[in-house]
Simulated scan of single mutants.
Amino acid sequence: MAQQPANQHKETLLQTLLPFDQAVRARHSVRHFLAKPLAQETLISIANDAQLAPSNCNTQPWNVHIVSGAKREVLSQRLLQADAQGLHSPDFSFDMQAFGGAYGERRKQQGKIYYQSIGIARDDLEARKAVVKNNLNFYGAPHAAFLFMPSFGDNVRTAGDIGMYGQTFLLSLAARGLAGIPQTILGFYADTIREFLSISPEYKLLFGISFGYEDRNAPANQFKMGRAPLNQSVTFHD
């Protein structure tokens, strides 16, 4: 087969991307992936898209590590071992119970719908623990990105920049018909991940993103959470 010229190949790739309005609606958190890895060219394209994320004064504070293949398998085992030994080392605090009011109700509703979709009863604590541990196997995804950041002041502005990077990364996936899930829980094992990837302690782990091809037949992927009405979140002033 004749090889496409570079510019023609680029145009073909661009034509396959979803327009923004479709990509932003297609994006959802996927909790079961196919084992099929992405091509290195695709990984680079996604990373290049995310590199265009906005940041305060163009500081671009993200320090991202993408783990695949054999490295991904070993890291998953390290994380499971750390969990079994109770070796939690979050760089930032997180309290699920701190979410009150409508925020807490949304959190509870998401958990209820998710566990119902995969057929796990509320009182089946062992099955629920196994589901949580599946986070540490990246939900079967062939790739995981870890979003590290330098520490400046109270870290709020920098963390906001990392969030914008993460959303750009996720939308790049969605535009290509791929899937991902941002995982706060991966940040609970910062020391384990830093040591395994030989990352300097000056970089703090905010969260990770597992990503790849969605398993569209998996029960865990058969629901999509809705959003609050716009008037509960946005006020227009004129």
Rank of each mutant, 00 (worst) to 15 (best):
Q4L: 15
Q4V: 02
Q8Y: 11
Q8C: 01
Q8D: 12
H9Q: 14
T12F: 14
L13C: 13
L14K: 15
T16A: 15
L17W: 05
L18T: 04
D21T: 13
V24Y: 11
L34Q: 15
A35P: 11
S45P: 00
I46V: 15
A50M: 01
C57L: 14
T59M: 14
T59R: 15
V64Q: 09
V64S: 06
K71Y: 03
Q81Y: 05
Q85E: 15
Q85S: 12
Q85M: 07
G86I: 04
S89Y: 12
D95F: 07
A98R: 15
Y103T: 04
E105M: 04
E105P: 00
R106S: 03
R107P: 00
I113W: 03
Y115Q: 09
E126W: 02
R128I: 04
A130L: 15
V131C: 02
V132T: 13
N134Y: 05
Y139A: 08
G140H: 02
A144W: 00
F146T: 01
P150C: 11
G153R: 10
N155T: 11
R157P: 00
I162C: 02
G163V: 04
Y165V: 00
Y165K: 02
Y165C: 00
G166R: 02
Q167D: 04
F169A: 02
L170R: 04
P182G: 14
T184L: 14
I185W: 08
G187Q: 01
G187A: 03
G187E: 01
F188H: 04
R194F: 10
F196P: 10
L197V: 02
L197C: 01
F207C: 03
F207H: 05
I209A: 08
S210A: 15
F211K: 03
A218H: 09
K224M: 08
G226P: 04
R227K: 11
P229F: 05
Q232M: 04
